Amino acid sequence: MAELLVIRHGQASFGQDNYDVLSDLGHEQARAVGALLRDMDWVPDRLVTGSLKRQKDTLSSMGYSEAPEVHEGLNEYDFGDLLNARFKGEVPDLVKGDRKTHFRALRETVFEWQDAAFNGASETYAEFTARVEDARQFATDTDAKRVLVVSSGGVIGQMTSVAMGAPKRQMMTLNLQVKNTAMTRFMFSGKSFSLHEFNATPHFMTPNGTKLLSYS
């Protein structure tokens, strides 16, 4: 069996004009998980990311200088676009600026997106699930035994829920649990694909490491 290790990007810039930029904490988180993998002598045979800057920069800060393969199916769904579509361009200020309110509204919005309860989003939920599955197949169609992927919370939630055979709502429940630079591990061989470990952060399990924990 081969391993697919999917790591969520480091903390990005919530509430800033450009979310797709790692914060200083995000770079620290990436360095910590990269150091852990080296300490474990876990050497990837293949590197894959989405096309987002925060994903590629996470891989770089982990200490991998080799250019990764890129598959856009690993990109996060556009949560700003979904909120705009649901609220018809009038997203409440509290939803945009307050973390608790934002993620509560995002959860409800994704559930409505899954049910096709509003129009105007640039991507349907069916299109999202199809591209994530395409990316999973791309990452596992290989002779490599250790594939390292850097992606985002929604993609990880979707990939995990499908591997578990869970209802579609589980995707968002898992999405909101995924910590920055958490590791989710799958085993694969041919058409076999199974979850081995979800949302692991051993690199945070020290007195200093606990200061690096974040979810957004």
Rank of each mutant, 00 (worst) to 15 (best):
V132S: 10
L36V: 04
K96G: 02
D98R: 08
F79A: 09
N84A: 08
D41A: 14
F138L: 10
F198D: 11
K179M: 08
H71R: 14
F14D: 13
K179L: 07
F186G: 05
G34T: 02
T160M: 02
R146S: 11
V43M: 10
V33W: 01
F103S: 11
A12L: 00
A35I: 08
A126T: 13
V149S: 09
G80M: 05
N175D: 09
K191F: 14
V91H: 07
K145H: 13
R185D: 07
V70M: 08
A166Q: 13
V33A: 03
Y77W: 11
L212Y: 03
V149T: 08
P167F: 00
A166Y: 04
G50C: 03
D78S: 08
L174K: 09
S151R: 09
E108T: 06
S23D: 11
S192Q: 04
D134T: 06
G190K: 12
A144T: 07
V33N: 02
H27G: 03
G89W: 04
K53P: 00
K96W: 12
K96H: 05
S151C: 13
T140R: 15
S214G: 05
H71K: 07
E72P: 12
W113E: 00
G80Q: 05
A139H: 02
P92Q: 11
V110A: 05
A200N: 04
Q16W: 01
N199R: 13
M159P: 15
G63K: 15
D98A: 05
E123M: 10
S23I: 00
A163F: 06
H196Y: 12
Y64K: 15
E72A: 11
F14G: 12
A144K: 09
F111S: 13
N180E: 02
G97W: 00
H27S: 09
A126D: 07
V6L: 06
H196R: 14
D24F: 05
I156A: 08
A182E: 14
V95W: 01
F198M: 06
